[in-house]
Amino acid sequence: MDIFLIVLGAILTNNILLTTFLGICPFIGVSGEYASASGMGMAVIFVLTMTLPANWLIKHFILDPLGVSYLSLIVYIVTIAFLVQVVEMFMKRFLPALYSSLGIFLPLITVNCAILGGVLFAIATWNLGFMESVAYGFGGGVGWALAIILMAAIRERLRFAPIPEGLKGPGIALIIAGLMAMSFVGFSGMINIRDFGG
């Protein structure tokens, strides 16, 4: 039950993009077209679900027992870069169709702040347990994908809208994101992932 609540909370109440501002650069940069937006969303779900438990294990079985938690940031980012590489090789070998549809977005995920941000929130700030971290990783990825897919759908409809010259492109995208964030405020208070932390 807790796991289900965390997944739901990560998608709606603690949406990684619209409430904690993580991964906005690709959200603005890649949301111009629906197909690439959904590809990017899939890649983020994949990587976030894998990196959170991996970094959880590293923190609790390597960094904490050795007392070297001051190295955590360097270790986390190297782990993320390594896992992105592994996911890329795995997909190339076993899921070539998905791999070619994701293209350049997969390697770019290393510098997507949603990944490192998700790790820092779940492991460092909220101190979630192992299963909770897996659930938050999956839910957070789905929430991010939901936001970018919604955004891409809206931007496709806006292509021929009479928008003031200065606001075309990133400007209007940010304002739409603001309106989306406002509507997600309606979910706040239902679930708070912080409560599941230790």
Partner: peptide, 30 residues
Amino acid sequence: IIPAGAFLLVGLYVGIVKHFSPGGQIGGGA
């Protein structure tokens, strides 16, 4: 104070900067 305001304000700033000095590169990165 809430996230929505930040998005709206940055969007407006970007629009204002682009309106008054249209040159230069505007783009989104990854």
